[in-house]
Computed example of a mutant assay.
Amino acid sequence: MFPIRDHNPSRRPALVTYALIALNVAVFLAMLPSYGDDRALLGLYSNWAMVPARISLGNGYYTLFTSMFMHGGILHIAGNMLFLWIFGDNLEDEMGHLRYLIFYLLCGVAAGMAQYLAAPDARIPMVGASGAIAGVLGGYMLMFPKARVDVFFFFIVFFKVVPLPAWLMLGFWFGLQLLGELGSSGDGGVAYLAHIGGFIAGALATYPLWLRRGGRVFWDRTNGAPPHAAARYRIQTTSVPIVRRRK
């Protein structure tokens, strides 16, 4: 299952969100030739990915920032950018462009630190925007717990799009990260602790904004939905004629 869109339109162009997506894609394209060359890829990771053991030695602190713009493959960046595109614009709308950019970067650093503190001697490089985007998810769930999110379910030959409240979809996602961390062997793969740390950091960083909006009063005014009209999507009917099987 994965989200494909929400029913929460932003009121202003999400310039920072679009710029972050563009920057991530540009870095990925710049790295693309290295994916077929292990030596070149190792050099990139050694210089720009976040390696906990390197930070423990007192250098490479800048990689807490640079690593959040690197990705390990097409599915990695595609999934991350989908989540950022769906959920980032609304937080940017509420926070403003500059505050949202600072929020995003700080969530990414918090996510990296969560992974670092769990294993400061690890030599496995960490890359990806997942931690920063997890912060966006945490902030979104606090601000718009009942915003509707269209989720695509696929199981073998069965598929369906189901609208779910944000708290259910994002809460389920967060639960998967907890389960993933409990079952993780710690020898590489998904940085679940970075996701967990980023999500919590995002919710905490958004909490003052939520209070300024009125806290529970903000929720009560719209029953936890966005404080503006929800987007409506029309399903276009196909022009392809239906051919029935003859008996």
Rank of each mutant, 00 (worst) to 15 (best):
I4P: 00
P9L: 03
S10Q: 05
R12V: 00
A14H: 06
T17W: 04
T17V: 11
T17C: 03
Y18L: 08
N24R: 13
V25N: 04
A30V: 14
M31C: 15
L32F: 13
P33H: 07
S34H: 14
D37L: 01
A40P: 07
Y45P: 09
L57A: 09
N59M: 03
Y61K: 06
Y61S: 08
L64E: 01
M70P: 02
H71Y: 01
H71S: 07
G72H: 01
I77H: 02
N80Y: 05
I86H: 02
F87Q: 01
G88P: 02
G88N: 04
E92L: 04
D93W: 08
E94N: 01
M95V: 03
L98Q: 02
Y100S: 06
L117S: 12
D121A: 13
A122M: 07
P125T: 08
P125Q: 12
V127W: 15
G128Q: 09
A132T: 14
G135N: 07
V136Y: 11
L142G: 11
F144E: 03
V149I: 15
V151R: 08
P165C: 12
W167P: 05
L168P: 08
G171W: 15
E181G: 05
E181Q: 12
S184Q: 08
S184C: 07
G188P: 02
V190T: 12
A194Q: 15
H195E: 11
F199G: 07
A203V: 13
A205P: 05
L209Q: 10
L211K: 15
L211S: 06
V217A: 07
V217K: 00
N223D: 10
P226N: 06
R234L: 06
V240G: 13
R246H: 10
